[in-house]
Every structure is written in C-alpha cells, then in structure tokens.
C-alpha cells in the first residue's frame, strides 16, 4: 500500500524528528482509557496497535501509550479520563463503548478524543454529525447497538416455537433505553413476548439466568453492552449450566462455548480507532476525520453448543454465518 507506506514514512519521519524538535516529551503519548482490565482487552489492543502501525507508529519506538483500566468499574471512568487529560496526552483514546467516550468528553474540551463504541455517537450526544464531528471528538462506531434487534430475530429463527424470550439489559448503559424500545418493536413484529432482565454487575448474572429459566424463555438475548461483551466466558459458562440458548454481540461468546453472536467486528473498529489516533498524532484535525461506521457485522455460531442444547440450526442461518465453530 503506497499510501500507507507514505504515511508510514511520514510517521517514522515525524518520530525521527520529534526528539530533536521537542526535548520533552521525547515521544508523543496516547492516553488509552478502557473500561475493563487488560486481559479481555488483549485482542482489541492488538487491533488498535495494528491501526497505529498502518500509519507508522509503534508503541515504545515512536509513541508511548498511557493506559488507564477501569477494571469493570465503569463509575471510575470519569476519574481516569480526568487523570489522562491532566497529563496533557497528545490524543485520548476512549475505547470499548459509550461510557468511556462520554467520560472522556466530560474530561477535556481541548485534547482530541478518538472513541470506539457500539452505539450511535450522534444519538448519544457524543458528536453533532457523522460527516462533520466538530469539537474535539471523532472515532469509530461498530453497529452493535443497532443490530441488537437482529439478535432477537436470529434467536427467533432458532426457536420459532418459543413464544417468549428474555432480554438482558444493563440499566447503567446509556444505550439501554433505545435498545429495549427497539427490541419491543421487533417482538411485536415477530409476535413474541419479552422478559426484560436487568444486570449491571457480574453478581446479578446468576439471578438473571434463574429468572429466564423460570419464565421458560425460548432464549436469552443480550443487548449490546461492553460490560456483557467483556464477560463472554462467564456468560458462556452460565448458559451451559442453565442450558439456556443465548446470543451476545461479541464473537468471544461462541468461542467460549456460547451459542451465537451477532455484532460489529471489533477487530475492525479498534484497528480504525488506532489509525485515527495515529492520524491525529500526525496533526490531522478531528473535524476533518468523519466518524466511521464499521461495515462488517458478523454472525458467529457454535454448532457443538447447539448440539448440546438440542437445537437444530436452520441451514439459512449456517450459510449466512461468518464463523461456524463445529
């Protein structure tokens, strides 16, 4: 890729001249704000670094990254964001969902913020428009929030006989209200009932599964929420224990033994966030960088789990899946 090469060259040239031009700091610093711990974020970070490298930035060589992990305690995000803002980082990356983006937006009006989220940044009030973000924010949105209704549709395709489904909602999520409304509309269209179940901490998961089982829900549909997305293994275990078919937004879920996932490709969204962060380091103004929507929405299926749950997956679903685990 010539253009990338050129950008890479520019990036490395900039990195090469930076220590000469600015004695302190020797390297530009990216503030990286994430709602979780490094473990579940590993695959996202890889994609992010890939995006940086596309423009010629390599962590430790010509750019430093200052990480702030909320360890799943989303209420800590504003403090961490303010901390990064006070360190006057070159660019603040708010990754892993709308809470981080909103916390970052509240923390600074001057430092450029590159967000990575699943919701609609305009609807959430993060930016004014997709094509002209304005102010000091831009970023990437996967379509995860928008496609939560498709999850219900797929679950209905799997269990056409079921008359009701459980929906897992994180009430602390800024997108929960709109997602629930969407799902209700969909349920009406499909002629089914919904049991909305709230869970905002890991401790409430167990109760949620119990309730779903008690309600004899045909399946559990998780709304798009980073808190759920980053607890795929735990949720997959619960599904297995309760023999509850479930669908989440993250591919990690079927990989960990869950039944199915449908959501935006996080590898793509994090990589693009990395590219944007690098472009900001190169001096690009955030107003010139339109908010990108991830084009790829992927369906992942775990056939082993389906067999264990005695669910026959219709061929239309299998042929339309991007990833099938056998």
């Amino acid at each position: 890729m010539r253009r990338r090469d050129a950008l890479a060259w520019l990036g490395s040239a900039a990195a090469w001249t930076l220590p000469v031009r600015a004695q302190t700091p020797a390297m530009p610093v990216i503030g990286y704000l994430a709602p979780e711990s490094p473990g579940p974020f590993d695959s996202r970070l890889k994609a992010f670094r890939q995006g940086l490298a596309d423009v010629g930035y390599v962590e430790g060589r010509n750019v430093e990254i200052e990480y702030r992990w909320a360890e799943g305690q989303y209420d800590r995000l504003p403090v961490l964001a303010a901390d990064l803002a006070s360190r006057q980082v070159a660019v603040l990356v708010a990754s892993g969902g709308a809470p981080a983006a909103l916390a970052a937006k509240a923390a600074t009006k001057t430092i450029t913020i590159v967000f990575e989220m699943g919701g609609d940044p305009v609807a959430l009030g993060v930016v004014d428009s997709l094509s002209r973000p304005g102010s000091n924010l831009t970023g990437v949105s996967s379509l995860s929030v928008e496609v939560s209704r498709k999850r219900l549709e797929f679950m209905h395709d799997l269990r056409p006989a079921a008359s009701s489904f459980a929906v897992a909602v994180n009430p602390t999520s800024p997108t929960s209200g709109s997602q629930v409304r969407n799902l209700q509309t969909t349920a009406e269209a499909l002629g089914i009932r919904l049991h909305v179940m709230n869970a905002s901490t890991a401790g409430e998961f167990e109760a949620m599964f119990l309730a779903a089982t008690r309600e004899q829900a045909g399946g559990l549909v998780f709304t798009s929420d980073p808190y759920f997305a980053f607890r795929s293994t735990q949720l997959a275990d619960l599904c297995f224990r309760y023999s509850m078919p479930a669908v989440t937004q993250s591919r990690d879920f079927p990989m960990a033994g869950g039944l199915m996932s449908y959501g935006g490709d996080f590898a793509q969204s994090h990589r693009r966030a990395g590219t944007y962060a690098a472009q900001v380091l190169n001096g690009e103004k955030p107003s010139n960088l339109p908010v990108q929507l991830v084009t790829k929405v992927e369906l992942a299926l775990n056939l082993k789990t389906a067999t264990a749950l005695s669910i026959a997956i219709p061929p239309s679903l299998i042929s339309g899946a991007d990833t099938v685990i056998e």
């Binding site: 379509l143 928008e146 498709k150």
Partner: peptide
C-alpha cells in the same frame, strides 16, 4: 423477501 444485515428480515 427482504434480508438485511441491520434491519429485520
């Protein structure tokens, strides 16, 4: 028939 990646089929 209508099938979509985002909207309901």
């Amino acid at each position: 028939l209508y099938v979509s990646r985002i909207g309901l089929n």
